[in-house]
């Protein structure tokens, strides 16, 4: 089943074109890597797919709903309920503990503190960072912080997680650890992932890759 389809996306920032006819389609539970050099437009593509940016031209449809037809309020509700996000860094609220950070999306969705925190505890345990529950993000290592961020992205049981260079700030070993736990968790829950990365070793965790070059995307033909 196709979950998310983007067609003929164009987006410019001032005179600089970032996307000039990019598109891709993602099935439920599918893990797709978006690859390409810096400045190729891969992050812009991710932001358009996730409804963070409005393309100048082209459509993004999520479960047959055209994101362009939704009001800002409806789009941000969709992001909160159906999507999860993992970025390179700086995504956790520094004043809250890791547990409170993971529980936050559930609290925003109206869950009682106790229920939200008990699900957050499970999420932290699944990413093997239960021991940092009471610490603030600044008191954790980079790898632990990223695993907390993944737990937070997963806690609302989203249909799609958008991950932009999730291991970009980590050394090889911690990057591997984050990817293994992240991918184990999404495969178990059937969550689709759009993974932006310029690292082939990270892209190799995905089911297939889409290459973005000069604002155009290309689904890669399978060899053999």
């Amino acid at each position: 089943m196709t979950l998310l389809v983007a067609e003929d996306l164009h987006k410019a920032f001032g005179p600089t074109p970032a996307l000039v006819g990019a598109g891709l389609s993602i099935g439920a539970g599918e893990i797709v890597a978006i690859m390409g050099p810096s400045g190729s437009g891969k992050s812009t593509l991710l932001h358009c797919l996730a409804g963070i940016l409005r393309p100048d031209r082209g459509t993004v449809r999520y479960q047959d709903v055209d994101l362009g037809s939704l009001s800002d309020g409806k789009r941000s509700e969709l992001r909160r309920t159906e999507f999860g996000f993992v970025f390179q860094f700086g995504q956790l609220v520094p004043e809250l503990t890791c547990l409170e950070n993971v529980a936050l999306p559930l609290r925003l969705a109206g869950l009682k503190r106790r229920d939200a925190e008990s699900r957050a505890v499970e999420g932290l345990a699944r990413l093997e960072v239960a021991d940092v529950a009471g610490k603030r993000p600044g008191e954790t290592s980079g790898g632990q912080g990223q695993r907390v961020a993944v737990a937070r992205a997963l806690v609302t049981s989203p249909k799609v997680i958008f991950a932009d260079e999730p291991t970009g700030a980590l050394d090889s070993l911690n990057g591997e650890r984050v990817m293994t736990l992240f991918l184990g968790a999404v495969r178990a829950s059937g969550t689709a992932v759009v993974l932006v990365t310029h690292e082939p070793r990270v892209a190799a965790y995905a089911d297939r890759e889409v290459v973005v070059r000069d604002g155009r995307s290309r689904e890669v033909e399978r060899a053999g």
Binding site: L183, R201, Y205, E221
Partner: peptide, 20 residues
């Protein structure tokens, strides 16, 4: 270059699964 790249990534996916 493109078909080589696809073949390389396919091989990397197989190794990544085996490693995992």
């Amino acid at each position: 270059l493109d078909s080589q790249r696809a073949a390389h990534l396919d091989a990397m996916r197989v190794l990544t699964r085996r490693k995992t």
